[in-house]
C-alpha cells in the first residue's frame, strides 16, 4: 500500500515535470549554477585549510642554544624539554650538522666554508609538538614556558606567521560563508518564484482536488518530489561540472604553482563534502516547493 502510494506520487511528480519542462529546466539550471559557485568556494576553502593544516603539522619550534654550553648541559636541556607533555620529539642538531645542512641547502659542495675559523651556526633543538598542541595558543604557551631556560639563546616558531595567516583565512571564511548563505537564500527565492508558476499552472486542478477530498499532504507530495528532483539533479550536475573544472584548472595551474610550493597537493572535495552538497541541493529543492505552496494551500 505504501509502495503503491509512493509510485503514485512519483508518477505525479514526473507528470508535473513533463507538463512544465521549461520551468523545471530553468529551476534545475539555477540550482546547478548556485551550487557550482558554492562548490567552488568549498574547493578553495578546503584546499587552503589543507595547506594551513599541513604547515601547522609540519611546523617546528626551533631553539637556538648558546655556544658556550657543554655537551652534558645540552643533553640535559634536551631531556628536560622532551619531558614536556606537549613534546612529541626533540632532535639535537650540533653546530657541525647545522653547517652541513646549510651547505646542502645552498648547494655548496666545495670548500667555500673551509676558510672559516669558527662555525657561525648555532646548535639547535628541533622540537616537534604533538598534533593536539599545534594550535597557535598551544604553541605560544609552550614557548613561554621553555623561554626561562638560561641555555636558550633564541626561540623561533613557524606558528607566528601561521597565526597571522589563519586569522586572515578565518576572515575570508566568514566572508565566504556570508556570501554562500546569501547565495542560497537568493537561489531559493528565485527558484521558488518560477516554481510557483508551475503550481499556478495547475491551480485549478489542485483546487478541484481539494474540493473532492484530497488532503494538503496528497497535493504537496508530488511538488515536493518535483523540488527534490530539481535539487538532486542540480547538485549532481554541479558536482560533475565542478570536478571537470577542477581537473582543467589543476592541469593548467599545477606546474605554475609547484615552483613556489612544491608540496602543494591539491585535492577535490572529499566524499562528505560531496554528500553535503547533494543533501544541500535536495534540501534546497524541498524548501523551494514548501515556500511555493505556502500561500497556495491556505484557503479551504
Amino acid at each position: 500500500m505504501f509502495l503503491k502510494k509512493g509510485f503514485y506520487f512519483f508518477d505525479k511528480a514526473f507528470q508535473g515535470i513533463r507538463q512544465n519542462p521549461f520551468i523545471n529546466f530553468i529551476n534545475f539550471g539555477t540550482i546547478t549554477v548556485s551550487l557550482l559557485v558554492l562548490g567552488t568556494f568549498l574547493v578553495i576553502f578546503f584546499n587552503l585549510n589543507r595547506v594551513l593544516d599541513k604547515w601547522r603539522y609540519e611546523s617546528h619550534v626551533t631553539v637556538y642554544l648558546y655556544d658556550s654550553i657543554s655537551f652534558d648541559n645540552t643533553s640535559d636541556i634536551k631531556d628536560r624539554i622532551a619531558g614536556f607533555e606537549e613534546v612529541e620529539r626533540v632532535t639535537y642538531i650540533s653546530k657541525k650538522e647545522a653547517l652541513n645542512i646549510i651547505k646542502e641547502a645552498l648547494q655548496i659542495y666545495d670548500n667555500s666554508f673551509e676558510g672559516l675559523e669558527v662555525n657561525p651556526m648555532p646548535a639547535t633543538l628541533e622540537i616537534q609538538l604533538k598534533k593536539k598542541f599545534l594550535s597557535s595558543t598551544g604553541v605560544e604557551s609552550f614557548v613561554a614556558r621553555i623561554k626561562i631556560f638560561k641555555e636558550i639563546k633564541e626561540i623561533q616558531y613557524d606558528q607566528e606567521w601561521i597565526k597571522g595567516f589563519s586569522a586572515f583565512f578565518s576572515l575570508f571564511q566568514i566572508g565566504g560563508l556570508a556570501i554562500g548563505v546569501g547565495l542560497l537564500l537568493a537561489t531559493i527565492l528565485i527558484v521558488s518564484n518560477s516554481f510557483q508558476l508551475g503550481v499556478y499552472a495547475r491551480k485549478e486542478e489542485l483546487e478541484i482536488m481539494k474540493l473532492i477530498g484530497a488532503t494538503d499532504f496528497f497535493i504537496k507530495v508530488p511538488f515536493l518530489l518535483e523540488g527534490v528532483f530539481q535539487g538532486l539533479l542540480g547538485a549532481l550536475v554541479s558536482i560533475g561540472l565542478l570536478y571537470g573544472i577542477y581537473q582543467v584548472v589543476i592541469f593548467k595551474v599545477r606546474p605554475f604553482f609547484s615552483i613556489y610550493i612544491r608540496e602543494l597537493d591539491p585535492s577535490f572535495l572529499p566524499l562528505d563534502f560531496i554528500f553535503g552538497l547533494t543533501i544541500g541541493g535536495i534540501l534546497m529543492g524541498m524548501l523551494v516547493s514548501i515556500v511555493s505552496m505556502r500561500k497556495f494551500l491556505k484557503s479551504y
Binding site: 477530498g213 484530497a214 488532503t215 494538503d216 479551504y300
Partner: peptide, 21 residues
C-alpha cells in the same frame, strides 16, 4: 481544517460550473 478532506469524502459535489479538468 485538516479534517475537511475527510468530511468531503462523504459528500459528492456537482458544481454549478462543473469544475472538470
Amino acid at each position: 481544517k485538516s479534517r475537511i478532506p475527510y468530511l468531503r469524502r462523504n459528500i459528492g459535489i456537482v458544481f454549478q460550473d462543473f469544475k472538470l479538468i
